[in-house]
Design a protein around this nucleic acid. Structure first.
Lengths: 338, 338
DNA sequence: CACGAGAATGGCAGCGCTGCCAAACGAAAA
DNA sequence: TTTTCGTTTGGCAGCGCTGCCATTCTCGTG
């Protein structure tokens, strides 16, 4: 059709807007308007630009576009880990909303390390994102300063126990710990233990445990034995942890786990060793993972609305409303293990 | 210290390289060189630039940098889903290597939809990434064309059964299916069933099942019953699927599942209904998830090196070597369920 | 048929940074 | 002291696109 003096598709340098405009016989700004559906142009112009773009295999350069318009469509998403399904869940919720609003998530992983979070956020910020979503409220001083000075929307997720920068979406981990303790108490358990993973890094798990312990205290009880695995949470860690704890404290009648991965590990230990649940031992977790809900005996746990947190966080990051704290709560699931 | 006529940190417009250069009393190119550690400059210059940058709270603008240098440090990562831990695992491997090499992953999710993959890749390409990592070898024609014409490294992951564009890193799903079948046969099972999820979208699972079936055929056997859940794989789906299949085919002595999620569901069904494993029924999965390995009876399954696939894929995408197909194989795990 | 309002369009100056090149600077060699 | 050569440095032209503004084109109106 258009026999321009092109040297074939995909030869030479990358096709630019200028190429498309020339091929369509219009100015660049016109081509730009058509391609973005912005401003006004005639149907005829529209067709010729679109045709030219298609036949040249034009791929717009958003780097240039972003620089020129001074507003990127990127949103940074900072999560501690990809190993625990919890964070991909949040990411999934965020992704759905962000993509729907024309944004592109850029993820970064901190491995639960505040220093790493700092450097990762610094590097993300250099892409001049339109917004930033971060897990948790605790950051280094410099991270907080960078986030505050970036003049973009910042959403902090999964925790409401503390001061936020702009938008906070989540639930109270302290309340979760307290509710868990009260549940065990109300079920009549008195010899309660704890199996957890490395809490120095997972601050939210630490908050839960602290509140759990406090709530036991209010009832005149205490954690009679605890086993902390100095590593990330995992099913295996939960299994080993419970095994070790039971050796030390054979009288336990209930165990609170730092999360469902750990709890499922504990559950597996019991299955493997013929420990009757919940009669001989009760198990309580946190997160409400699929595996916990589908187990032969559904795990008693706290269901955290992770996907929703991602969704709401993303929605607010894309909005231009005022700063806000959104506590969307959690749900206690009375399974068959307590 | 430097009492420039700045109007305070973070006032007015964003701090640019020009601001830093002026504050440090050097030219922009010098400031640029110092900040990137590129080229040569005196120690004295270095100090003053760094000090100025720090005290002004300068955040480099990579958008501009990328445009100017015509080479981005972004790598697109396209995965079908975030719900199945398999893909976050791949992403994790890729992330580690990419970040280590100074790249920033930009993830996009296709929901197993080729059309969506096409649009998602188109949009990713407009960020002019340095490379692209995609799950699977099957794409729409246009997707293939875009990828081929982008003149960037492209890695296709998790499958080696087919033609790749540039770099292919994974293992043979067909071989996995075949090996699984032979394993069951060698263990003496003869009444073999299948429980799977929606295969029209998950092409790799479809390849495994096809090969599995073919291998049974070579041994004069066949799948005597199959149950396909018209949805994504999940523990619950596996549970329900096995329940339904056993109702229809009570004589089954072994079941091949489309993956470990499904298989764990099946395992839970057996536990809940007192079906003895593996005597009454054998179970075989695919992936080698943590939950499968830590179960009271470790699941017999195929361990896929997902993290490694991400790592090697990322390494090759960052390299400038020739196109290559890297089959890193898989491992058959003889668990306690066969 | 002329006139004005609005639609359609093109030109061009940046966005903030990097890469290239020439200039300035030193220190060592002659 | 002068010449030479490597080290530092600054100037400036873009990268590809968008936003602004001036211009041209179209009609409906008087």
């Amino acid at each position: 059709m258009q026999s321009q003096a092109e040297d074939g598709p995909q030869a030479g340098a990358m096709i630019t807007l200028t190429d498309v405009a020339r091929a369509a016989g219009v100015g660049e700004s016109t081509a730009s308007r058509v391609l973005r559906g912005h401003g006004s142009f005639s149907t005829k112009t529209r067709e010729s630009v679109l045709t030219a773009a298609r036949s040249l295999g034009y791929v717009p350069n958003r780097i240039a576009g972003t620089l020129a318009s001074m507003g990127s469509k990127l949103v940074g998403v900072v999560i501690p880990s990809l190993s625990n399904i919890v964070f991909p869940d949040v990411l999934r919720g965020a992704n759905t909303v962000l993509v729907g609003a024309g944004f592109q998530p850029v993820v970064a992983v901190t491995d639960y390390d505040p220093e790493r979070e700092e450097s990762v956020i610094e590097s993300l910020l250099s892409w001049r994102p339109a917004g930033m979503m971060v897990a948790g409220l605790e950051h280094t001083e410099r991270t907080g300063a960078m986030l505050r000075n970036a003049r973009i929307r910042v959403a902090e997720l999964l925790d409401t126990d503390g001061e936020g920068i702009d938008i906070v979406v989540g639930f109270s981990n302290r309340k979760a710990g307290r509710v868990s303790a009260r549940h065990l108490i109300s079920r009549g358990y008195r010899c309660i233990g704890y199996v957890g993973h490395d809490l120095s890094l997972d601050l939210r798990a630490a908050k839960r445990f602290a509140a759990f312990r406090a709530a036991l205290g209010e009832a005149g009880l205490s954690v009679i034995g605890e086993e902390i695995i100095p590593a990330a949470s995992s099913i295996e860690a939960g299994r080993d942890g419970l095994a070790r704890l039971l050796e030390r404290c054979p009288d336990l009648d209930a165990v609170y786990f730092s999360n469902d991965d750990m709890a499922i590990g504990g559950y597996f230990h019991c299955l493997a060793h013929g420990i009757t649940i919940p009669d001989r031992l009760a198990i309580f977790g946190y997160n409400g993972l699929d595996v916990a809900r589908s187990a032969p005996q559904p795990l008693s746990t706290i269901l955290t609305p992770r996907v929703t947190v991602g969704e709401i966080g993303a929605r607010l990051v894309c909005s231009d409303g005022p700063s806000a704290v959104v506590d969307i709560g959690f749900e206690l699931i009375e399974g068959a293990t307590t």
